[in-house]
Each structure stands twice: as structure tokens, then as C-alpha cells.
């Protein structure tokens, strides 16, 4: 026991919190990847044939889909945190532990909603020939 809490519960909810932090880290990584692709969208990178140097305007894919990959895995970790919390709440249904479980579930819900929004806002953007805009292939 750790204070009024069962040791296993504290470890499980602590690990669930660690998973949420890792998921947030993956989301940050996805944002950096997406940022890289956004930078490529900026003007000034248009194809040019007027000199010795050719500078093309790379578009988002595969950065866009890689960002989606990272955000997908981040959501997997959130689902895992929720599963672990629910299983632990069933194993140790005493009130002090359930209070911890409720706090963990609240954090999971907030993180899950936040990351789901990010995933929805990250299209795969796989290019079709001649296509200029994102195709939002999900």
C-alpha cells in the first residue's frame, strides 16, 4: 500500500499518465513533421528554370502521412491508457483507488479528444498526378 492506495493501482495509473505524456510527445513530433511540410508550402519555392539552380516546391506528402502515422500511434497509447485504467479499476474497486482512476480517465478523455482533433486535422495528402491541393485521403 502507498498511503490509502493499492501499490498496483498507483503504478498502473502512473504508467497510464506516462503513456499520455508519450502520446503528447508523439503528437509534438507529428507537429514538427507537419511544420516541415507547411514550410514547403510557403511561396518562394516555385519551380524555376531561369538559372543554374532548380528549386522545386516540395509538397507535404509523405510528411503529411508520416505526421498522421505518429498521431495514429499517439492515439493508440491513449486507448491503451484507458484500457489499463479500466481494467485496474475493476481489479481494485475500493474508493481511494477509484478516485485515482477517475482522475486518470478525465486526463485520458481530455488528451484523447485533443489528439483525435489533431488526427482529423492531419490529412494523408497523398498526391495524385497533376493534383495541386490536398486530397484529404484518410
Amino acid at each position: 500500500m502507498i498511503g490509502p492506495f493499492v501499490t498496483e493501482s498507483v503504478l498502473a495509473y502512473g504508467y497510464a499518465a506516462g503513456l499520455l505524456v508519450t502520446a503528447a510527445g508523439l503528437d509534438l513530433l507529428a507537429r514538427r513533421v507537419a511544420g516541415r511540410s507547411e514550410r514547403h508550402r510557403e511561396p518562394g519555392h516555385a519551380p524555376s528554370h531561369d538559372g543554374h539552380e532548380i528549386v522545386r516546391g516540395p509538397r507535404p506528402w509523405p510528411h503529411s502521412e508520416a505526421g498522421r502515422f505518429h498521431r495514429g500511434l499517439a492515439l493508440v497509447l491513449v486507448v491503451l491508457a484507458a484500457s489499463l485504467t479500466l481494467v485496474e479499476a475493476v481489479r481494485h474497486p475500493a474508493w481511494p483507488d477509484l478516485a485515482l482512476a477517475a482522475a486518470a480517465l478525465a486526463a485520458i478523455a481530455v488528451t484523447g479528444r485533443w489528439l483525435t482533433g489533431h488526427l482529423r486535422a492531419t490529412p494523408a495528402d497523398f498526391p495524385e498526378p497533376g493534383q495541386k491541393a490536398a486530397n484529404h485521403d484518410r
Binding site: 513533421v33 516546391g57 506528402w61 509523405p62 510528411h63 498526391p127
Partner: peptide
């Protein structure tokens, strides 16, 4: 690897045929 993928991205975006 990211630079590599980025470099690849330049080409397949320019292609008139599907990557």
C-alpha cells in the same frame, strides 16, 4: 531518413504519373 523522404517527395510530386 527524413531528408531522404523529403528529397523523394520533390520528385513524385512533379511526376505526371502516380507514384
Amino acid at each position: 531518413a527524413w531528408s531522404f523522404v523529403q528529397l523523394g517527395a520533390r520528385q513524385h510530386m512533379e511526376s505526371r504519373t502516380p507514384f
